[in-house]
């Protein structure tokens, strides 16, 4: 019995210690920022790996989510004779929640795991050590550009997801179910608030992006340099990243939409 309690305490302390390590890691990367910003080539290369290569899955997912949302909304609203409100439901759901969260989850899975694997591999083939011995700071050259890229890529991907979703919803609503085109767009315009809905959704995506890349880069940097260790680190990135997205989403939603 005592052993079990000891185990819980031990795990708790280990988790807190790890969080501390991650925080110090992030702080060290922040210190290198001035040096990174004058080397835009590195950031652009990372934007390609994290952003552009996730674009396809975001486009597909966004379209389908928007379409399904419109369909389901119609089936429910038609009972109240309120099917004209379909665009309101589609747009608000996408902007406030589904856009940032689904994009975040997909991002954690695709870009996050790739980041962890890449950095973990660099660690195990001693490339990071090699850079240090050449008097080049891997924090500045390898880690920081990736963090910046994630920070920039997520809001872009989220905006694209929402836009494509709205268009998908339009397809289903107007050409599938027969809502008037004018009604779809005008209701969307009047009922959606730029600051409370769109900007809040964007802020969420920026927060998610930062947290996901932070976890991904840290796990890669901290990974055990064996094939098994790498697999574990990648899994941790996806799991912890996804959970963080969902948890932060709740927190941010409560903060942002709490008094509506």
């Amino acid at each position: 019995m005592m052993n079990k309690i000891q185990l819980i305490g031990h795990k708790l302390i280990a988790t807190v210690a790890r969080l501390g390590q991650a925080a110090i890691f992030f702080y060290q990367i922040l210190l290198t920022m001035p040096g990174v910003l004058i080397r835009p080539k590195l950031i652009i290369k990372q934007l390609y790996s994290t952003g552009v290569q996730t674009l396809v899955i975001i486009l597909v997912a966004g379209t389908f989510v928007g379409m399904v949302l419109a369909l389901q909304a119609y089936y429910v609203l038609v009972d109240f004779g309120a099917e004209d409100s379909i665009s309101q439901m589609v747009v608000l759901s996408l902007m406030r929640e589904l856009g940032p969260v689904i994009t975040g989850l997909l991002f954690a899975g695709r870009a996050g795991s790739a980041l962890t694997a890449e950095i973990g591999l660099m660690k195990s083939t001693e490339q990071l050590s090699g850079m240090e011995m050449m008097a080049i700071d891997p924090m500045q050259r390898v880690m920081a550009p990736r963090i910046l890229a994630g920070f920039l890529a997520m809001p872009i991907l989220t905006a694209i997801f929402i836009a494509v979703g709205v268009l998908g919803g339009y397809l289903v609503a107007v050409h599938g179910v027969g809502i008037y085109e004018g009604v779809y767009w005008s209701l969307a315009q009047t009922k959606v608030d730029f600051y409370t809905d769109l900007m809040n959704g964007m802020i969420k995506s920026i927060v998610f992006g930062l947290v996901i890349v932070w976890i991904a880069v840290f796990e890669g940097h901290d990974s055990v340099p064996t094939s098994e260790g790498l697999g574990q680190a990648t899994t941790r990135t996806v799991v912890h990243g996804s959970l963080a997205v969902l948890g932060l989403d709740f927190l941010l939603t409560a903060l942002m939409f709490g008094d509506i």
Binding site: L47, M95, P155, I162, A188
Partner: peptide, 22 residues
């Protein structure tokens, strides 16, 4: 491609801001 990506992002955002919000 990165340039296109960023432009797409901004375009999506503007489309949403102008056409879909108040």
């Amino acid at each position: 491609t990165v340039g296109v990506f960023v432009v797409l992002g901004f375009a999506a955002f503007f489309m949403l801001a102008m056409n879909v919000s108040n």
